[in-house]
Design a protein around this nucleic acid. Sequence first.
DNA 1: AATCATAAACGATCATAAACAATCATAAAA
DNA 2: TTTTATGATTGTTTATGATCGTTTATGATT
Lengths: 269, 269
Amino acid sequence: MHERERHRVILSAVQSRPVATVTELVELTETSEATIRRDIAALHVQGKLRRVRGGAEALTPPTQAGLIGRPFSVNETININLKRAIAKAAVEMCADGDSIIINGGTTTYQMVFHLAHRRCQVFTNSFPIASHLLANSRNSVIVPGGTIYREQNIILSPFESDVTKHFYARRMFMGAQGIGAHGVTEADPLLIQAENKLLNQADELVVLADSSKFKQRSSLILCRLERVHTIITDRGLRDEDRQMLEDKGVDVIVAEAGEAEKQESSSVA
Amino acid sequence: MHERERHRVILSAVQSRPVATVTELVELTETSEATIRRDIAALHVQGKLRRVRGGAEALTPPTQAGLIGRPFSVNETININLKRAIAKAAVEMCADGDSIIINGGTTTYQMVFHLAHRRCQVFTNSFPIASHLLANSRNSVIVPGGTIYREQNIILSPFESDVTKHFYARRMFMGAQGIGAHGVTEADPLLIQAENKLLNQADELVVLADSSKFKQRSSLILCRLERVHTIITDRGLRDEDRQMLEDKGVDVIVAEAGEAEKQESSSVA
DNA sequence: AATCATAAACGATCATAAACAATCATAAAA
DNA sequence: TTTTATGATTGTTTATGATCGTTTATGATT
């Protein structure tokens, strides 16, 4: 990966999270620690970021993260490492040239960082995802038409006839609010609508859901488990849930939190 | 491949991705590294791009911030105050609650700043405009579906059936590359396509064009002057051009770059 | 609280590979 | 012909990644 590209990746990484560690950035850019350290040092003297032990942080604390970076709530910080590992596993399913669909959501948003050096054709209804990929990657970006909803940050149209119908992908990646024997559930009716529009536009449906999602079951049912091809989750998945998934014919991928993600999930209550 | 051709290829390559490497450009142009290096060096001294180790990058990298406050080339800086005044006059035509269409372009982009305190329903094919309005205003934002072209920064779909057909506005605002008796012209075929899709979706067509645009006439004809309802320009408009516009039934608004704008642009940092 | 053990993070160094500039020979254009 | 542009060759510079020893953080023990 080229120097400028790395700098771009690094800057976008620090702006979207409290601190980006060297190890993370090594994974994102697929380079060595030495290079990342040199890059951070260079960006530091350029005044683009602040160098800290272990990595780098943004100059402006993430209190006022603009449109792209989401404001950080305590709730999200806890699972952020899990989400990252899951998102990484998701991107690893993609090869250059693939056509993929990414549904909006906090987990799927983490995919953009790992897509930095890929060259896929990405269809997404998430405005932040489109924006980030557009500015920080070489993937081609396609969006559906419609109103941009500020709260959910997704583009949604009430009409059937839009560019969505013309896009068909190998895989579609989506998050979920809950997963149970009855299917995949989502809390926001708007998200249900958005996801429904894309459900039939891909061969395989891949759901990104950390293990805590298996405890939350209520809300609106999006689709049945039989429709899901793969679920990417973490080690916190209970055996009974895993069994349930396999009974329904769902592939289960357990994303291993690597070096950088040593935040433990064993304490899930 | 001829020199001019190569330069065009290089410039477009650079604008559509973070950084274009020498090796890539060699493949694109089927020439040698030496030639590409010479080309890059030449374009660098011409100020068309920035030379970096490994290749070249655009002067205005597509950063997220760049979507908001994009630096302007020397050429554009001269007219920036005019553009601002013209854009201001355009926004003054709008009232809260109006549905308007804004076509992508550097002049129309200036409208976003004046739209900050409005609450309109804005349909735009410009990704930067959508992004800015979304983050910095309370207008509702609607976009068409399609591929996002990095160079032009617009969203465009090859398909007829998208959300565009369902949006009808009172006014549509657009820029132009040139204006003459034969009509409104545009340089980029992609922009022609994009504008064409929206032409019939509004009652009134408002063209934002500083007076220099009346001297440039060539390129592709977008539409005839009879189709234009209003043209907003500056004091540099020649009488003969004004007469010509009025003969065709076009309303002419001369935006005064008054004291207010000058103070604003100089004191506001 | 102080100390210690351990592992992570760091800086420095060096070998390697990539990118570069300079040069020259050749081919195309004037 | 002369001039210019191109591509191959050369040696040089620069970036990168691995390895080393050192420093710093962490948390376990007393």
